[in-house]
């Protein structure tokens, strides 16, 4: 505790004016010294905490559970085809609006994240494949929510003039060194001021995932997110009819504002509830579908099999004046076609 005046036992030593001035100077000096010592102690403590946190996060990245699987697959030059042969599909929204996810603190589902006594889903790069336990808030012996905002939460805003087109083929079954999967994707929407935002993909597909499987870049009919270990657990576990990961570009008013970026799209069962809140696993609606576009604030680290935080330049300003550091956009008025064969 910092005292703002000296203890009264010092006072008898400074009985006249000169002595009182001396006393004031001494008190001031002592306070300055005390404050400096405290600042150094706090800085050292903070540095030590930061160092420990960095060490823990590095350890969590090294503990990534998919590393073994990916190691066995990422150098395969002739990967197998999908059972039953290639699957081609197209997903389109021709008009209408979109719902854009805003930064929010995700509620933590015990089915995915366990309990403070028995935590789950904590390894890998935070936010990408796991959520470190110290980032989780606890109440009454249960995890409640993440202690920081992410792209995965209940907050969203509707934006007009949304359209998207995805044409893709799932040919290659597994992660590998090469892929025959194909993706053509473009999406755009507007803000109230008439600015147009767009995302295009994919100049290159993620034939093998750095931290979790990407199945040649396109996957069909698979579980993603939640407890699946494929993608962030901050999204609920969701049956995914089709998904892709690749490198693309982010545009504003026709100009590229960020490139290359990891672009992820997926057609899933419906994972929103009343008020457009993000569902927990038990709240998912299996009989409806929607399409999610994600340009996440992460980039793969060159030469390493992990991600690092890297905000997206979206050009879209949030009400607090800051730039939205990701795109998480939902399209819900869809035409879907699919067929076996290329």
């Amino acid at each position: 505790m910092i005292r703002t005046s000296l203890p009264t036992r010092f006072l008898p030593f400074f009985s006249n004016a000169s002595q009182r001035n001396e006393g004031r100077r001494l008190r001031t000096g002592l306070l300055v010294v005390a404050a400096a010592v405290l600042a150094v102690l706090l800085a050292n403590t903070t540095q030590a905490q930061d160092k420990n946190m960095k060490k823990m996060l590095m350890q969590l990245q090294e503990m990534n559970q998919a590393d073994g699987y990916l190691e066995a697959h990422r150098d395969v030059e002739n990967p197998p085809e999908l059972l039953g042969g290639p699957l081609s599909f197209a997903v389109e929204q021709n008009s209408g609006g979109v719902l854009v996810g805003l930064p929010d603190q995700r509620e933590l589902d015990s089915d995915v994240f366990g309990t403070p006594e028995m935590p789950l889903a904590f390894t890998g790069t935070p936010g990408v494949t796991g959520v470190p336990v110290p980032f989780r808030e606890v109440e009454n012996g249960q995890f409640t929510q993440l202690d920081r905002p992410t792209p995965f939460g209940n907050k969203s805003t509707a934006m007009p003039s949304g359209s998207m087109m995805l044409k893709a083929q799932d040919v290659t079954a597994t992660d590998a060194a090469t892929t025959e999967d194909q993706v053509k994707f473009k999406a755009s929407w507007e803000d109230k001021q008439g600015n147009t935002y767009a995302v295009r993909c994919c100049e290159m597909l993620s034939a093998a995932g750095p931290e979790f499987p990407t199945f040649g870049g396109v996957v069909t009919n698979h579980l993603l997110h939640g407890f699946s270990g494929v993608g962030t657990p901050l999204m609920p576990t969701e049956y995914t009819y089709a998904a892709f990961w690749g490198m693309g570009a982010v545009l504003k008013n026709g100009e590229v504002v960020d490139k290359p970026r990891v672009v992820h799209g997926m057609l899933t069962e419906y994972v929103r509830t009343e008020g457009y809140e993000l569902a927990s696993d038990s709240e998912v609606t299996p009989t409806r579908k929607h399409f999610h576009l994600m340009v996440a604030p992460f980039m793969p680290v060159k030469g390493e099999h992990k991600f690092e935080h890297n905000n997206v330049s979206t050009g879209f300003q949030l009400p607090n004046g800051k730039e939205l550091p990701f795109w998480h956009v939902m399209f819900e008025n869809l035409n879907i076609e699919s067929q076996r064969g290329e």
Binding site: Y270, T273, E274, Y276, T287, R288, H290, E332, N333, L334
Partner: peptide
């Protein structure tokens, strides 16, 4: 009588 109705793309909510 009582009519319960919904929005097709947002049936869940």
């Amino acid at each position: 009588g009582r009519y319960r109705y919904f929005c097709v793309p947002h049936e869940a909510a």
